[in-house]
Design a protein around this nucleic acid. Structure first.
Lengths: 128, 128
DNA sequence: CTGTATCCGCCTGGATACTG
DNA sequence: CAGTATCCAGGCGGATACAG
């Protein structure tokens, strides 16, 4: 009789699965840089401002492990390594574009809301 | 002449803006719980498994500050507080559904890729 | 019922130095 | 050129206790 209150757990949460893949700091930026085609390591490093070697490598390794990026080491001197999106990785690109669109349409409203909220809550008791 | 290598920075990255809003651990779960309509604090707490008071409150405050959730405190004894999505918050729900769909379609491939990767890289030198 | 306050471990990510 | 290794600070999130 009583209305059900369905419980959701974070483990069975599809959103979390996706976010755990793409939400680390540089992931989307790296994938976006690869959406234009095959890129070499140093090329990525130059295109993505302020990314460190450690973070670029770490992000690429994680993407490779998740099957979103393919690594191709060319045995030459000096060594060259190419990275590109896998078909699986490509399936995320449209979603990134939608995120971009959302940010374009609505992010100004978020900034507005934030400053409104902060003004209302940070006033150090100046009221008479 | 040389081909341009356009640089992207993380500050002007639209993806980051969106992810910074929704990627904290409980955010999407809370918004999803609110997508069914107005909910009270305790109701949310019961519906979302394993969320602590601190995390629920903190997530709600952040959502309120970003203008995605509206808080309505009803002056009664004992106090009652209702939360609901704002129109701005509602605009994110379709995107969550798409994330859910992506997870349904492709997450098994990610898990497969991970176990493949781990098998190839974790073998403790057993080769002859 | 709806919160606040405090303490604290862990993990992410940055800086730096070194290597095949 | 394309990494690896190490150290370290800061922040996120969990546990617990208390409050209007």
């Amino acid at each position: 009789m009583a209305e059900k209150e369905p419980r959701v757990s974070i483990e069975e949460c599809s959103y979390r699965k996706v976010l755990d893949i793409v939400s680390s700091k540089w992931t989307v930026l790296v994938m976006a840089a690869l959406s234009g085609g095959t890129r070499r390591y140093g090329e990525l490093r130059r295109r993505i401002a302020d990314i460190s070697q450690k973070m670029l490598t770490q992000t690429l390794r994680q993407l490779e492990r998740d099957g979103l990026v393919e690594r191709n080491a060319i045995p030459s001197v000096p060594p060259a390594v190419e990275y590109k999106l896998t078909p699986l990785g490509e399936t995320l690109i449209p979603h990134f574009r939608e995120m971009r669109q959302w940010a374009h349409d609505y992010y100004p409203l978020v900034e507005r809301a934030r400053s409104d909220y902060d003004r209302k809550h940070e006033m150090p008791a100046t009221m008479d």
